[in-house]
């Protein structure tokens, strides 16, 4: 490659990296407390959520693997992102609301609340390792692309791409990660569209493809298939891949953390939907077409996965630089998301339970240190995986996510499952899958059992078997009912539930405590019959309602109790009315707090609830700083 091309590329990359650092500096100011660092103060809106999610699938592996498939089999190359988008839709339908309603920052935290601490600690390990491995696999991919195009050494490439990721994640936490993902996804969408546009303009449109490629390139899923399915049973391959993605997308801690960071149930659910559409539009057919053009114009890459690189080298310098920056950003966004996910779960599930007296500032500091530690591991692994190959890293990563699926589903849908099942399911499947992946047998033909299938099957079997044994052994009544002391905190929780905060997330945010503390309060209130759960599964389990006994108790403690469910408390009305009065002019939370005479933090926590209930809304795409009252809000205060 001539030097002027490299020069232009370097300029583009430097501008892009500078923009990332700038985002880190800006978002650093947005982080005021640990929740700001770990879950972006639950301020992420629908579009930002959708874009942040799509950055996960728009990864280096997709850009090399799916274009490679486009080159070898044609349209079926879309299968990779197609299956991911399908899982995202399933998440939108069934899991987005549920995981957000728990109020937990990570999957392990929720498992801890639902089953107990032993389950939480064992689950943190595979989740954190999986996140770190997926980050490392991306850095490896990124380094290969940088070396391929710029000709620098692998070591230099790893250092450059990973240090930038560290700098912005360290500074702005989840806000920085999400904001950079936003920039990155825009860049890579441009890269994909411009690539296809340029290919069409240069080599001719659709007819070029249909004219020069065999008919099976246009069948979907066609003759696709791996291992014993190679060349046949395309539909089965499609189903297998869709289920496989389900196993790694649903119980995935960095996707969970993103969901926890959304500003409302609506944003969480619609975010997954937006992500699926973006994936369909930008990273399925168009990506496959890029590979197909490579075939149609007769390129012969050393490996099909290098086809995009060859095409980029044919493009005019500026376009090539833009596309290159787009691919690079796709990889870095996935890496930083994964490092942040590992950081959140380690802080929340391995540090905070043992540092109960830590102040919020200490937690923020510690989470920054943990992010750096995760990064160091990623960095070292990126160097190691160059030798043993990223395939092994991804095999372990996917398998570790998959083994947590049975406990994940059990926590919502199977009330009879208790802690021992989850503990042993995770431990046994963790050990077995680690051995299985490292034995490398699955890499030999017939490639039949990818580690995810082994992982999920063992985890599921152990869960079921231990469940049967435990239920057979522990017959009769489990524990004797002791008299329950309801604490002041519990009374506060009860009062909030009576004000409509009937899901854990509302209580966690409003009181500024952990999910575990809220859950303990709810358990005591349940034992005292002051509240009931609406059901035994899913949302019904999470939703709590105040009983008549609870109302009487609250009244005896001097609280004013609304007699009807869904009637706003006086304080909520005051806030909505204040927002209505101030909507005309620009205001910030400080002014509003003075006006309604509340502590700023208490107010912003109350606003999160009102935002979720769509009584107020915010015009901002990113960080929430101003509010408007909605039509529902107006109606609610008129009553």
């Amino acid at each position: 490659m001539d030097t002027s091309r490299i020069g232009i590329m370097v300029v583009f990359v430097v501008i892009y990296l500078a923009a990332l650092i700038l985002i880190g500096l800006i978002t650093k100011k947005w982080v005021k407390e640990s929740s700001g660092y770990l879950v972006a103060g639950r301020g992420i809106g629908t579009l930002t959520m959708g874009v942040a999610l799509v950055s996960i699938i728009a990864a280096g592996t997709t850009f090399s693997g799916a274009t490679g498939l486009g080159f070898t089999v044609g349209m079926p190359g879309a299968i990779w992102s197609f299956s991911w988008a399908f899982s995202a839709l399933l998440c939108a339908m069934f899991f987005a609301r549920l995981s957000r309603a728990t109020g937990c920052y990570s999957i392990a935290e929720w498992i801890g609340v639902r089953f107990g601490d032993r389950a939480r600690y064992v689950l943190t390990i595979p989740q954190a390792i999986a996140s770190i491995l997926s980050g490392a696999a991306q850095i490896v991919g990124s380094a290969f692309i940088i070396t391929g195009i710029c000709g620098c050494s692998y070591m230099t490439a790893v250092i450059v791409s990973s240090i930038i990721v560290l700098v912005y994640s360290y500074m702005g936490g989840l806000w920085a990660v999400t904001m950079t993902e936003f920039l990155q996804v825009i860049l890579l969408c441009f890269a994909v569209v411009l690539s296809v546009g340029w290919l069409m303009a240069t080599y001719g449109g659709w007819s070029t493809l249909t004219g020069s490629l065999p008919a099976h390139f246009f069948h979907y899923p066609g003759k696709l298939g791996w291992g014993v399915f190679n060349g046949k049973w395309g539909l089965l391959t499609q189903i297998g891949l869709a289920v496989g993605f389900f196993l790694i997308v649903v119980p995935n801690t960095y996707i969970w953390t993103k969901t926890a960071a959304t500003r409302s149930m609506k944003s969480a659910q619609r975010g997954f939907w937006v992500a699926a559409i973006l994936a369909y539009v930008f990273v399925t057919w168009l990506i496959a077409m890029i590979g197909m053009y490579g075939k149609a114009i007769g390129l012969e890459p050393a490996s099909p996965n290098a086809i995009y690189g060859l095409l980029v080298n044919k493009m005019p310098a500026i376009l090539a630089a833009l596309v290159f920056t787009g691919i690079l950003s796709a990889i870095m966004s996935t890496a930083s998301g994964a490092i942040m996910g590992a950081g959140v779960t380690i802080t929340r599930d391995l540090y905070q339970p043992f540092a109960k007296n830590a102040t919020d500032a200490q937690v923020t500091r510690m989470s920054q240190i943990i992010v750096v530690l995760c990064w160091i591991i990623v960095f070292v692994l990126s160097l190691v995986f160059k030798a043993i190959g990223p395939l092994l890293a991804l095999g372990l990563c996917f398998a570790y996510f998959a083994i947590t699926l049975p406990p994940f589903l059990a926590s919502f849908y199977f009330p009879s499952v208790k802690e021992p099942e989850v503990f042993w399911a995770v431990i046994v499947s963790f050990v077995v899958t680690t051995w299985y992946v490292l034995s490398k047998q699955w890499l030999q033909p017939p490639h039949f059992f990818h580690p995810i299938w082994v992982g999920v099957a063992i985890s599921f079997i152990v869960l079921v078997v231990v469940n049967f044994i435990r239920r057979a052994v522990s017959s009769g009544s489990e524990k004797s009912r002791r008299t329950i002391e309801v604490t002041d905190r519990d009374t506060e929780v009860l009062a909030l539930i009576a004000q409509g905060r009937n899901l854990p997330i509302y209580l966690i945010d409003e009181l500024g405590v952990t999910a575990r503390e809220v859950n303990e309060s709810i358990e005591r209130l349940l034992a005292a019959s002051y509240v009931t759960r609406r059901g035994t599964r899913a949302m019904g389990y999470l939703t709590v309602d105040v009983t008549d006994a609870g109302r009487t108790y609250l009244a005896s403690k001097g609280y004013t109790v609304q007699d009807k469910v869904g009637v706003l408390s006086d304080i909520d009305r005051t806030i909505i009315a204040a927002v209505r009065d101030m909507s005309a002019k620009k205001f910030d939370i400080t002014t509003l707090a003075e006006r309604v005479n509340l502590d700023e933090r208490v107010l912003s926590n109350k606003l999160l609830y009102l935002l979720d209930k769509e009584l107020v809304s915010t015009p901002e795409l990113f960080r929430i700083s101003t509010f408007e009252v909605t039509r529902r809000g107006l109606k609610a205060i008129e009553v």
């Binding site: 939108a92 339908m93 149930m265 659910q269 559409i277």
Partner: peptide
């Protein structure tokens, strides 16, 4: 051109999900 079937499938899935999302939101508001 059987890949167009999967485009159709994708569109149908997106619509079904949208209906489910709206349904969940309506339920929550009641």
């Amino acid at each position: 051109m059987s890949w167009l079937w999967s485009v159709l499938f994708a569109i149908v899935m997106v619509i079904i999900t949208w209906v489910k999302i709206r349904n969940d939101e309506m339920e929550e508001n009641n």
